[in-house]
């Protein structure tokens, strides 16, 4: 059982306050959707949790299974069981997808046991093949440089492939649905849902659209506005947003849309 507790989190980017007091608790097996207009701070929350060096927490706490998450380096957070599926994953020229995935596995094994020799090549090949098949990824992708020249859909699938490889306890999906056609969305969303059930993951799904939530079926829906969670509710909240947009939220909280 894992718990990620975000308490009164404030954060800045380049001295600009973006998060202005976030409180949210995510437990194993729970799926939370985070919605809200552009610029409300959703991606900043994702980056802060993953430990991006350009994002600075200025107040509050994040406790992950009793550990102070904000004190940990990005790689430690990942090995502790936190995962972020990036909206715009970086490309890593010269490093193949296969080599990269092996490194993610071996880094975990080495952290457990410094003498570990790493996963054997046949074992790794079996694992990779199985996970790629689950997400409908062409095996040839394994030999390509990570994200280099990948289409939007390929990048998102590969993010989920990474999630399937490292098997996190808590996963954050940052607009994984953006830029996907309907078929790709289904594969990615169903794959994530299956993983969540298999691993009993806690999930935070950042999105603008109801579409992905049809597959992922959130237990809770939160609405973020101007760096705060202003509304929380059940799945019906997402449907309401789909129908009425964000204007009623802005009106209710007196926030003017940034142009």
């Amino acid at each position: 059982m894992s718990i990620l507790e975000i308490r009164n989190l404030h954060a800045s980017v380049a001295d600009q306050p973006i998060l202005k007091g976030i409180d949210l608790t995510i437990r194993s097996g729970e799926t939370h959707a985070m919605m809200g207009p552009n610029g409300s701070g959703k991606s900043t929350l994702a980056y802060i949790l993953a430990g991006h060096p350009a994002y600075t927490p200025t107040a509050g706490q994040v406790i992950f299974d009793g550990m102070d998450l904000l004190d940990m380096a990005a790689d430690e957070r990942s090995r502790a069981g936190l995962f972020l599926a990036f909206q715009y994953p970086a490309s890593v020229p010269g490093v193949t997808l296969a080599k990269f995935l092996r490194a993610t596995i071996n880094s975990r094994r080495k952290a457990e046991n410094p003498d570990d020799k790493g996963i054997s090549i046949p074992e790794f090949r079996r694992l990779l093949k199985q996970k790629m098949d689950m997400l409908g990824i062409d095996h040839k992708m394994a030999g390509r440089y990570l994200n280099e020249g990948f289409s939007g859909g390929e990048k998102k699938r590969v993010e989920i492939l990474q999630m399937a490889t490292v098997e996190p306890q808590i996963a954050i999906m940052d607009e994984t649905d953006s830029g996907l056609d309907i078929d790709a969305l289904r594969v990615v969303a169903e794959g994530s849902k299956r993983l969540q059930e298999e691993l009993d993951m806690g999930m935070l799904v950042i999105t603008h659209y109801q579409r992905i939530l049809d597959y992922i079926q959130p237990d809770y829906v939160h609405i973020m506005l101007d760096g705060r969670i202003v509304e929380s509710g059940g799945p019906e909240m997402a449907l309401k947003l789909e129908e009425s947009g964000y204007d009623w939220i802005r009106e209710k909280y007196g926030v003017v849309e940034k142009v």
Partner: peptide
């Protein structure tokens, strides 16, 4: 950062990037 966010320690991430 991307490599580190997958659990790869900084030193290994730098090595991989240079090798890449």
């Amino acid at each position: 950062f991307y490599l580190m966010s997958r659990g790869i320690p900084r030193e290994t991430a730098v090595e991989m990037s240079v090798q890449g």
